[in-house]
Amino acid sequence: MTAPPLIEVEDLHKNYGLRRALRGVTMRVAQGEWVTLFGPNGAGKTTLIHIIATLVRPSRGTVRLQGHPLTGDWTEARRHIGLVSHRSFLYPDLTAAENLRLYAHLYDVPDAEARIRALAERVGLVKRLHDPVRTFSRGMVQRLTIARALLHSPLILLLDEPYTGLDAGATAWLTRLLGQMAREGHTILMATHNLEQGLALCDRAVILHRGRLVFDSPRQALSTEEWQAVYRTYVEEPS
């Protein structure tokens, strides 16, 4: 018997009033797989990420985590999901260590101090652990955001436009870190509209357009140029 996909999304719909953000999205993310979610602004990428992150309830359809539907009380499922977006979820007047400690305790992370130290080393912030986050550059905030998202060792890491606002150095650093994580077998679902960054590390890429999943293919099936051509047919299609 094969293991169920880590994340399984089936016929997912989300309406915000009259606006239909998602219109019947079905997709799967296997354990250890990196899937990139492409689409122009307003395609429904963030809505899909937020539904999987348990921040928003779908209007219709189901999300399964390791085969278990996310219905009713999502509290336990939240222990297995990490989210990095262009917003940090960090408190600027607390130090980096205080922010990580806060989230570690909220997630009941065992041996929190050792975990904080290990992650701070991983993201290169050990020397700044006791500085307030408001003194950090955007790149440092994003490093700390990743440490925050990994604190509870989530089964899946959701990345929603994680490169937003980063300079070239910080972008290269983030790509290196995410590459390491992919090699270590982390399961990652990343939403981006940047084709180059999105294709760099993924195993599979899908395109969302106006709330529908319109293209789904393994990364290696198409060359970068072919991907660009496919993407352009959707993104540059006159509305």
């Binding site: 992150a53 348990t54 921040l55 509290t75 336990e76 939240r78 222990r79 999901i81 989210l83 977006s85 917003r87 940090s88 979820f89 960090l90 408190y91 600027p92 989230y103 909220l106 997630y107 009941d108 925050r148």
Partner: peptide, 15 residues
């Protein structure tokens, strides 16, 4: 809301 922190709290396994 400034840094999206409310979403951070909402994502935590906290009642």
């Amino acid at each position: 809301q400034d840094q999206g922190n409310l979403a951070g709290l909402m994502m935590a396994p906290v009642d």
